[in-house]
Amino acid sequence: MPFKRTPQQFAASIKEVTIGTGDKAVTLGGENVFPLYSFDAPISNPPKVGVEFSDTGPDRSVPGIAAFYAGADSLGDVAKRACDMPGADFVSLVLESADPNGDDMPIEECVALCREVAEAVSLPLVIQGSKNVEKDAKLFEKVAEALQGKNVLLMSAREDNHKAIAVAAVMAYGQKIGAESSVDINLAKQLNVLVSQLGIGGENVVMNLGTAAAGYGFEYVASTMDRVRGAALAQNDNMLQMPAITPVAGDAWSVKESVAPEEDFPEWGPAEQRGVSMEISTAASVLAAGANAVILRHPDSVAAVSKLVSELM
């Protein structure tokens, strides 16, 4: 009997979320097929690749990153340079210095940095917080206000601060938010329910389902993302139909395989190449599991992952 291929299209689809404004705005989601299954139905918005840098600047200890940003001294210059990275669809500023357990930069100064970056960029902007629940709630409210009209994505609204962030960012200032859960499918859904109960529609929310570097509990990340996408499409669960974004860089560049010096592990080869490999393999894996966007640091990773996406579409 000849093989008859039946395209697996769902009646449900992932909601579209647009960040940024004008020609360079990017739209995440919209597909009604499993991740990267463009052979089942066209994927109108292929996954997007973002370039991450910290508010202290890019990680210049990595030679390829240092070389790419050479001469870009102010944060505004760094942001502008990041937009020129081949393969970049958006950029992402991490407000690392805001962390109360670290530099504890005052909110006004953080807002000023965000303004500087927002003025400099030509691509849509995604802002990652300090990872401190209380600080982020206050910080994102002010950032949302300062960047009104830019349509930025503010990561991360979590269970304990989602209300303050969602109300300020989306309802008051028209920004987008990232609903962050850490590898917990039930919490991912619950957070979307809570946000929707505030009257906020799915077109304003992107999910950050949590991440891990490949080899560091990544199988939990993959199965969570698979299950979420399966429920969204096969069970038409509208509380899980938001697109997903995965900040890959932080984990990928902090595991031993990426940071151990070559002199300690000569058989592993150059550290930079290992970090790039870790970043690419993690990004490719989350894209296969359902991420609509990944955030990376190294120019080689950005180039490789954007090439992967464009060749699969």
């Binding site: 039930n186 919490l187 859904k189 619950q190 329910v193 809570l194 109960q197 429920a231 669960d237 899980l240």
Partner: peptide, 10 residues
């Protein structure tokens, strides 16, 4: 359907 704490409100 996937469980969430607020499932009775959906």
């Amino acid at each position: 359907t996937l469980y969430a704490d607020s499932y009775l409100e959906l």
